[in-house]
Simulated scan of single mutants.
Amino acid sequence: MTDNAARPRLIIEFETERLRMRQWRESDLAPFFALACDPQVMEFLLPLATRADSDAMVERIRTRIAGNGWGFWAVEHKACGEFMGFTGLNSPLADLPFSPCVEIGWRFARKWWGQGFASEAARGALQVGFEKLGLAKIVAFTAWNNTRSAAVMERIGMKEDVAGAFDHPLVPDGHPLRRHRLYRIQR
């Protein structure tokens, strides 16, 4: 599954009990940058150095959703309408040892942690991946010591592929976040 800019697709958006997964809006840019500046949120991720870097990331995500119909959706709290972060599915551009693949991922502002939102959104994304997109399997990966994300992966039914641990090619040699653990789930 690749980007298809020549033929726009219907954008998949969906809801769970408490959340709305949708295409990104201009109003999401500032709260996403605030999330990207939080050292605890970014503890296991490479930093987005500037607002321009953050906005460029959102534009890449938005373009992929427009082309594929799916991707890393913006997550909105249904009750208050507030932007919370993102979750969704992605075909990584990096040449990973298990490519080609579709990954599931998430990133939430710290104020939403510990309330089950990441797991709820991820379960919804898995359902879209398996039921609407017909995927046979989905992977997830995170820095070796990111126990919070690993716990979400396990809560949504993913199993760690211990033999699949790898050095992420986009993380510099010698960087403490280079080693990653791999999780998988099948339909």
Rank of each mutant, 00 (worst) to 15 (best):
E103Q: 06
M57V: 07
M42T: 14
L45S: 09
K111D: 12
R60S: 11
F98Q: 03
W73A: 04
A66I: 03
L89S: 01
N68S: 13
M84W: 01
A74I: 04
K111P: 03
S54W: 11
R64P: 00
A49N: 15
L35P: 06
D95L: 13
E82Y: 00
G67V: 04
F33A: 11
D55K: 14
M42D: 07
S54C: 12
F72M: 15
L45V: 06
T87Q: 05
L96T: 08
P97E: 05
M57I: 05
I65L: 14
P39Y: 07
P92L: 02
R62D: 09
A56Y: 09
F72C: 06
R62L: 09
Q40H: 13
M57A: 05
D55Y: 14
L89V: 03
P100R: 04
D53G: 13
S99L: 06
V58C: 09
A56L: 08
D38V: 07
C80V: 13
L45F: 11
P100T: 10
W106S: 04
E82V: 13
I65M: 09
T87K: 00
A34S: 14
A56H: 14
N90Q: 05
G67Q: 15
E82K: 13
A52C: 06
A74C: 11
C101H: 05
E43C: 12
L93D: 10
E103I: 10
A66R: 11
P100V: 06
W106R: 00
L96W: 09
R64G: 14
P100Y: 04
D95E: 15
R107F: 07
R62S: 14
A34F: 03
I65T: 01
D38C: 11
N68K: 15
F44R: 01
F86M: 10
A49R: 15
P47E: 10
F86Y: 13
P47G: 03
M42E: 05
F108G: 01
A34Y: 06
M57E: 13
T87I: 00
V102Y: 02
H77T: 00
G81D: 09
T50K: 05
A52T: 14
S99K: 02
L48M: 13
A36F: 09
K78P: 05
S54D: 08
N68G: 11
D55Q: 14
M57T: 07
F44V: 05
K78R: 15
D38I: 08
A94Q: 12
G85P: 08
V58K: 03
R110F: 01
W106C: 02
G105D: 02
L89D: 00
N90D: 04
I104T: 06
L48S: 11
L48Y: 14
M84A: 14
L35Y: 10
G105T: 02
A79N: 13
K111R: 15
A94S: 08
E76F: 08
L93T: 12
Q40P: 03
P47V: 11
F108D: 07
I65Q: 04
F98I: 11
G85W: 08
A34K: 15
A56K: 11
Q40C: 01
